[in-house]
Amino acid sequence: MARSAKVKLFAAAMCAMFGLAGGEAYAAQCGDNASGFEQWKADFAQEARAAGVKNKGLSALAGAKYATATIKADRAVHKAFSGSVESFMQRRGAAAIISKGRSLKKSNAALFNQIESTYGVPPGVLLAIWGMETGFGSYMGKQNTVSAILTLAYDCRRPGFFTPHAVAALQLVDRGALSAGSVGAMHGEIGHTQFLPGNVVKYGVGNRNLRDKSTALMSTANFLRAHGWQAGAGYAGNMGAIAGWNAASVYQQAIARIGAEIDGL
């Protein structure tokens, strides 16, 4: 199927997702380099307006830059999840995550008890994700979030996946949960546990400020529960919920192992 045809189908899917009127959306043309990005932004603004994006979000869209570093990281993403579970865990510092995770579980016992009572999600899996994603908040990224997510929506590799997240990012700017200058990870993930913008909209709790530790952890628990986490089913019974968080098998298995160690299972 030609790229332009694919993008039209992606736009139609976005139209359905956001409840747009008329059943059709103007599909901005994807690209493989920076040369068409400014024209794409102008075209994408029509889709964004139709999805309810207001002036602040549209201004952030207009000011976004083609994120070359994001594209470079995206082209190499498969390497990050290669090899065995053991090698992946070693590369990602699993032993240190387990050690610090156990300590944080104790020092934040009231918070984790509240989360488990509300969402049915135990501390271990949340601490495993938190440690794996940002080293427990020590590094949440320096890439401009709006530019990163818009670049990925423009790029021809996965526009269907990233377009709804791009619209969501602009909506979050309108709501004040993000700004045009907000920074995060290379693929536009936000906060302590690295939520994509569309997931902030769907599963974020409270003020959706994922740079706040408690909000991020509660939102992560809410995400896992929405993806099928069952209290009392253990890690073996909740691999599907972990898969909802990340599709890579080595990541899923690592999170389950680290979480179980933190929980003392």
Rank of each mutant, 00 (worst) to 15 (best):
G232T: 03
D155F: 10
Q39P: 00
P159H: 01
F88I: 06
A236M: 05
D32K: 15
I129M: 06
A67R: 03
G83F: 05
V205S: 07
I129H: 08
L9Y: 00
V7G: 03
G83L: 09
A62D: 12
I242G: 04
S179R: 00
G198A: 15
G191A: 10
F223K: 04
Q39F: 11
N199G: 10
A73V: 09
G232I: 06
L152C: 07
N246F: 02
A28I: 05
G264L: 02
M132R: 11
I190A: 05
N33R: 05
I262F: 04
V77Q: 15
N33Y: 00
A51F: 03
A50Y: 03
Y26E: 10
A185E: 11
V201S: 15
G93A: 13
A226R: 08
S99Y: 00
H187T: 11
S84F: 12
D212E: 15
K79N: 14
F81V: 14
A243L: 06
V53S: 04
N246V: 00
S82R: 08
G204A: 12
K105E: 11
G22H: 01
A64L: 04
H192I: 01
A169M: 03
S249R: 12
G63Q: 10
Y154T: 02
A233K: 13
D263I: 04
V121M: 08
V250K: 06
D263W: 07
L210F: 09
S214R: 13
I262M: 02
Q143L: 12
K6Y: 14
Y154V: 04
D74Y: 14
R211K: 14
R175V: 00
A241V: 02
W130Y: 06
R49V: 14
L265D: 13
G204S: 10
T68K: 15
M132Q: 14
S84K: 12
R225Y: 06
E116N: 13
G184Y: 03
A34M: 08
G184C: 07
F195N: 07
L150T: 06
G244N: 05
I255Q: 00
M140W: 04
A128R: 11
E47I: 07
G264C: 07
F112H: 04
T70I: 10
E47R: 01
A28W: 00
A51C: 12
Y203K: 05
M140K: 08
Q194I: 02
L265W: 11
Q252Y: 03
K202L: 13
F18H: 03
A42E: 13
V201G: 14
A226T: 07
F195M: 08
